[in-house]
């Protein structure tokens, strides 16, 4: 494969969008936020984000929103990610590695059940006070 041009990228996107409209839209309104502070980066958060994209792609899920944030205040269990799935509680997972990402996609996002052995609840106290103690 040679170097892709912007035009080729546009074409590829159009093809994908057409294919997408024929499938049901799994993953819609789901959101994954990866903690990408200095602590997260040092612990491998970029690999986690990469693995998320790869596993979502393998499961043909195109609609999950994948974003990043700074440190969530849980530096001791980095890499951390927050997962929002409609109808389920918002969860922060910690000590996330490639195997855990696979579990989170298959169990939490697709299977709608929590991955209990990696849950680290809410952001730490110094962040909670900032957004109203959520």
């Amino acid at each position: 494969m040679g170097r892709m041009t912007l035009e080729e990228l546009r074409k590829l996107r159009d093809e994908k969008q057409n294919a997408l409209q024929k499938r049901d839209i799994e993953g819609k309104d789901c959101r994954v936020v990866v903690g990408m502070g200095t602590c997260g980066i040092a612990a491998g958060a970029k690999v986690v984000l990469d693995t998320f994209l790869q596993i979502l792609d393998e499961n043909k899920i195109e609609n999950v929103s994948v974003t990043q944030t700074g440190c969530m205040g849980l530096c001791y269990v980095e890499p951390t990610i927050e997962v929002f799935v409609p109808g389920m509680p918002n969860v922060i997972y910690g000590k996330v590695d490639a195997a855990t990402v696979k579990k989170i996609v298959e169990q939490h996002i697709i299977g709608k059940s929590l991955v209990t052995d990696h849950m680290f609840d809410r952001p730490a106290a110094d962040i909670i006070s900032k957004d109203g103690g959520r």
Binding site: R10, L12, L20, L53, L56, E62, N63
Partner: peptide
């Protein structure tokens, strides 16, 4: 070209690029 860079499908295309 791709629209907002925030969903898994779009990001996978961008990665390929």
């Amino acid at each position: 070209v791709l629209g907002p860079l925030n969903t898994s499908g779009t990001l996978n295309l961008l990665k390929e690029f």
